[in-house]
Design a protein around this nucleic acid. Structure first.
Lengths: 166, 166
DNA sequence: ATTGAAACTCGCAGAGT
DNA sequence: ACTCTGCGAGTTTCAAT
């Protein structure tokens, strides 16, 4: 059974502070919560150990990386039981930031980040080339009304930037 | 004109390291890149100042917060020019992690995180209660094949947890 | 933009409650 | 699980290049 590991009040407050700025010092967290640094240190260490904290990330302005274009691609596949393979194949495509297996006929949704429509076209072709995929539907993101992820880009390394050739 | 602020090689490598673990020390980054800590410090400071770095976040295991259920809600609205207001209204609803204004008929997409289907129902009602909204379509996320955001939850603070009452 | 040194602050571990 | 204590390590500033 996958039991829900619940969290106490103090840990929740530590996470709240880390969420706003993951690079604050333990000492600063301790100050804000009226604890000692050691206590904060221990709690964070345990949350990391228990997998409650998965990691820490930087949110980057995508324009700075030459990736101003975002889109969602909905995907239909045919033998539905190939979903795991399709999921893996989509996830591996450069420019795919997120990929979800969903209920419904359009059983995959991928969020794309790229430099321009040419780059988007190339990504769409790669998705359509996956064997069980028989249809895609793409919508462009005009604006994010709320974006938690900021731009946690998998592709800081990648180089899907505006200047790249073939 | 919104010019694309491009980034040099060193900054890209710094961002790559921060992406994997935003809580590494500047000294450690410096070691990996063969720079001095001061240089790394200065470059990070400037990227923060210029808005290239938006912030740093912790990725939390959602189950630990009692939020095992994820969904996407597509929204249709009627006078299309009320989009900005609708976007703001959706973004404010507790449980909405991300909200995007899109091209196409379903011009908004919201990603939801909540404790159970009851909670999801309540969120859907709130979305449908927004004036210009005349239709929603909900799909449940079965699995994330790729999830950059990990679980950057806006609602660590919130308390949409399993145990909450009304 | 980078450096090296100086002053300050923090991380982290050990021992104790 | 928290506190106190202390040293090694990290942060941050600054004059100089």
């Amino acid at each position: 059974m996958k039991q829900a590991i619940q969290i106490d009040e103090k840990n929740r407050r530590i996470l709240t502070i880390l969420q706003e700025n993951a690079r604050v010092s333990n000492a600063e967290i301790a100050r804000q919560l009226g604890m000692t640094t050691s206590a904060v240190f221990e709690r964070i260490r345990k949350m990391e150990e228990r997998g409650i904290i998965r990691g820490y990330s930087v949110q980057v302005e995508p324009a700075a990386l030459g990736l101003p274009l975002s889109a969602f691609v909905s995907v239909k596949i045919n033998p539905h039981r190939l979903a795991p393979e399709v999921g893996r194949a989509i996830a591996e495509i450069e420019g795919v930031e997120e990929a979800y297996h969903l209920t419904g006929e359009e059983c995959f949704l991928a969020r794309i980040r790229c430099s321009d429509t040419d780059s988007l076209e190339r990504i769409l072709m790669q998705i359509n080339d996956i064997e069980p995929v028989y249809a895609t539907r793409t919508v462009i993101i005009l604006r994010s009304a709320k974006e938690i992820s900021g731009a946690l880009l998998s592709s800081v390394v990648g180089g899907l930037g505006a200047g790249e050739g073939a």
